[in-house]
Design a protein around this nucleic acid. Structure first.
Lengths: 172, 172
DNA sequence: GGTTATTGCTTCGAGTTCGAAGCACTCAAG
DNA sequence: CTTGAGTGCTTCGAACTCGAAGCAATAACC
């Protein structure tokens, strides 16, 4: 194990870091594709739609505000509007203005939405176990949770600088 | 509701598994968004485009077949055709039929493509270090590489059953 | 109270993604 | 040689995604 002479960051990653990064991206892609296929077959849901339903199912009262939903799944506002429309058309959620704040829209799970979620969920869990957790020891899972949990916090704290502070539009 | 008597898989995940999974998806989303922003700012490249250039830069001779490129980045063939067109229009790659096999197209990095790659690469590495590796110990990195490497192999070995064997279209 | 930000969501346009279908070439079998 | 299967890539259409711009409601300030 070579000593790192000083702390100054080199322009390269260590082999282990590269390996970890490639493995991460590969698992990310493959797992996502596999899960999407399973969800499409089981309940004709996209991954995003499933995540939204799952988050609603998890919420007390079965409803959330649009923005909270979007933040929860790391998703654009406009994209969420689109998906929420689709889910509403299928009768899986309702959308209504919040009584608190007329600006915000509250998305709520319908009975049918809850039913679909209940139908799809076990298959999703099975897929996860089969694809991901079947090869992982209990310690591995703990390690993953600890390491990635820390990384997630760090990433949340360092947002990708949400667009440069743009100058205001010129008045007429 | 009875206790879980044996090892047979329950329909739920353990809290640690859930935690690991959520952390994984969150890191995946956040890291992807952040890296995409960095690449767009630095060289007006999408993540996919960067991955393609990087893979070409890594290849002996600086060229690869379309299919090998697509498999390498877990990407659809048609999507690759689209992105390869964009890269070709920008003069970063060339496409030409393989002398070996007239069917296959060989994508090769141009000098300009290599230059762009050299420009963008350090920033990419820096971003990775800043966003991901700055919080990880050397042991963490080793653990990640080991655990996710194993998971990746397993996923590669269990492809999402490439579409059900659909019946062939009726002849005329 | 009245003006000026800020917030929450939607609409819009442009760009990207995928799978299915199609085309061209190669290989195997007769 | 001829047929048929298989492979490699592209084209096509439909769906999805995002950011910018727009609208309405709330909050902040004097």
């Amino acid at each position: 194990m070579p000593q790192t002479p000083t702390d100054q960051p080199p322009t390269e990653l260590t082999p282990a870091q590269l390996e970890a990064y490639f493995a991460f991206t590969e698992v990310s892609s493959l797992l996502r594709h596999a899960v999407e296929k399973q969800l499409r077959d089981a309940g004709d849901l996209s991954y995003v739609q499933f995540q939204l339903l799952a988050r609603l199912g998890d919420a007390p009262g079965g409803w959330r505000r649009m923005t909270d939903l979007a933040d929860g799944v790391v998703y654009s506002r406009s994209g969420l509007t689109y998906q929420a429309q689709l889910l509403e058309q299928r009768g899986l959620v309702t959308r209504s203005p919040s009584p608190d704040d007329e600006r915000s829209t509250v998305v709520a799970l319908t009975d049918e939405g809850r039913a679909v979620l209940a139908t799809v969920f076990p298959g999703h869990i099975d897929a996860l176990r089969r694809l991901l957790f079947s090869t992982l020891s209990s310690d591995d899972v703990d390690d993953l949770a600890r390491i990635l949990g820390g990384a997630a916090s760090h990433l949340r704290a360092n947002p990708p600088r949400s667009a440069a502070p743009r100058r205001r539009a010129p008045r007429a």
